[in-house]
Design a protein around this nucleic acid. Sequence first.
DNA 1: CACAAAAGTAAACACAGTCCACATACGCTA
DNA 2: TAGCGTATGTGGACTGTGTTTACTTTTGTG
Lengths: 229, 229
Amino acid sequence: MLSTISLSRYTLLKQAMKKNVILEKRKTFRHGDLRNALVAAGLEMARAGGPNAVILREATRQAGVSPNAAYRHFAGQAELLDAVRSACLSRLAAAIEDEMKKCRPGRDSQAFARKSLRAVGMGYLGFAMSEPGMFRTAFSVPPPVHEQNPANTASMGLNPFQLLSLALDRMQESGLLGKKDRKDAEYLAWSTVHGLALLALEGPLHKMPREIVLALGERLVVMVERGLS
Amino acid sequence: MLSTISLSRYTLLKQAMKKNVILEKRKTFRHGDLRNALVAAGLEMARAGGPNAVILREATRQAGVSPNAAYRHFAGQAELLDAVRSACLSRLAAAIEDEMKKCRPGRDSQAFARKSLRAVGMGYLGFAMSEPGMFRTAFSVPPPVHEQNPANTASMGLNPFQLLSLALDRMQESGLLGKKDRKDAEYLAWSTVHGLALLALEGPLHKMPREIVLALGERLVVMVERGLS
DNA sequence: CACAAAAGTAAACACAGTCCACATACGCTA
DNA sequence: TAGCGTATGTGGACTGTGTTTACTTTTGTG
């Protein structure tokens, strides 16, 4: 009795959905690329509202799929968020890369090294200012450590940390940095820019105009360059 | 997400039962000090799980009160969280203050200035390491800017930012810092320590041992001192 | 071509935040 | 001292989220 009722109800609902929703967005029962679609939707939510705005049900809604379908691709919301975070890190790496590509090695290797370090710092800060939601998401959740995860990198295959290491290597090679000072200098340099970015995004400086933040960034990079050695 | 929430809720309930907060029905219809009780409960949740763990309903539960009672004291969860954030900032200020009290002015005013700056930096970092949940909460939500809010200060009546300003003033007064370099130096110095703290708490360095983080902090303070001028 | 695995659906549950209407007791005034 | 307005707390209901369990449909493979 009950089974027949629910069965007929099920088929009726199915017909309705075929006519209304599903046929509009998707011809096949299978989505075909749901995992990527969910990450893309999550990325957009992260861009708009940061990590807390990454809603699993909303992602499935945007993909035109039932909420539970997500669980075929992610263990839960946390895992989806982690995939989104990885995508955000990748965008950050791309932004830094764009800045670094502007520096070409010339005769003056010290100038090249300085430009490289500056490119990393300002690329980092620039991304934080132009894409605050993605930047906050990139560093929000306890992420896996250094991890050479290809998903975090851009076309050069280096993640933000490695791009910074590259710039610091150039500093050392050109004689601007001693071997002892070079050690772990990544962490020191990274801290400064990361700190300013977060203070400006969600800290006490969040009302400070972007130009001033970037101007502070310039001073910061100089401070790092001078203070490291 | 929900699993972690219920988990923390479970432990919090256990704590509550230890203290007999819930089981002891209060005799009076009025609570008497509900607002403070809610903030205290929220502070404990923040300490244990950061800003996202500050649950309004759970706070009312610990206070032995119905969920809606909170709305007589806060416009909503965001406002409760803001009060908790303010309390966290106050604890941070107290931690820095404790460090600064160790520096006594002697004959060498430059040494005093250096010690002061170091105290601010290491007090800040030390609090971040020992109370990660409260530290993250203190800077999580878009907070009001400088705001001389007494709730954010400790016994000296200075918030963390003002304590840093004080240390930098000592640097300038003792001749370690020129007038031009002094301007906005707060932001530069703060950025470095804040950045390291967050990278170590919820960034790529979150697995780095605390001692190493603090050692990096020492180098960082030296870098600031040398790089500012 | 059968059938197991992959991928999606439906229904239900617990919990969070919030709004509405209602109840109670505290404190002031008459 | 009685009355009454208001601050404070209660109860119930609604929406939205994450998640689990049981079911259905498709696909690819032996």
